[in-house]
């Protein structure tokens, strides 16, 4: 099953590679991984999307907790949570396709953030499945380039990951 794991870790050189190294050394999946400093500049927050059986997810959480640089770990799937990912897509938008591209982008609440004679660049956020759905709705040959941030997640309401 797909899990979104959030963690707080020391904002130090090498902390990211400890986490990435753990996943590769133990053969765990990483679907996506995002990391950036938090409002407390000594901490970084990482979101890892992974998949595995309950036993494997339990091991992943334990192994992450074992890393000295990792301060706190939360499996967002243990409760209600929100997931968002940002994607930038450059699509072919030559004259006859311009309207259709705009329409599809509107349906997915995308925003056109750059326009050239032949292309649109569209910014779109949502759950990873929504971004997949948007890409699926496009003619493959119309997609020039895509870049995705990977999912970020946060617990709903009182579910808070903080030290």
């Amino acid at each position: 099953m797909r899990h979104i794991i959030s963690l707080l870790m020391e904002n130090e050189a090498g902390a990211l590679s400890r986490v990435a190294g753990l996943f590769s050394a133990r053969g765990y999946n990483i679907e996506s991984l995002t990391v950036a400093p938090t409002e407390d500049s000594s901490l970084s927050r990482m979101t890892i999307v992974t998949s595995g059986s309950d036993e494997i997810i339990e091991q992943i959480i334990k192994q992450l907790n074992k890393l000295i640089d990792v301060v706190k770990v939360l499996d967002l799937n243990d409760g209600k949570h929100i997931e968002r990912e940002l994607m930038l897509v450059k699509v072919k938008a030559s004259h006859q396709y311009r309207e259709e591209m705009k329409r599809i982008s509107d349906i997915f609440r995308g925003r056109i953030i750059d326009v050239s004679d032949n292309t649109f660049t569209i910014e779109i956020t949502g759950s990873s499945t929504k971004l997949d759905a948007y890409l699926d709705s496009l003619d493959k040959s119309a997609i020039v380039e895509t870049v995705r941030t990977g999912a970020s997640g946060i617990g709903r309401g009182d579910r808070i990951l903080k030290i």
Partner: peptide
């Protein structure tokens, strides 16, 4: 002493 050792290979 290591929680990660528990249920790693055997439930």
């Amino acid at each position: 002493i290591d929680p990660a050792s528990i249920s790693k290979r055997v439930k």
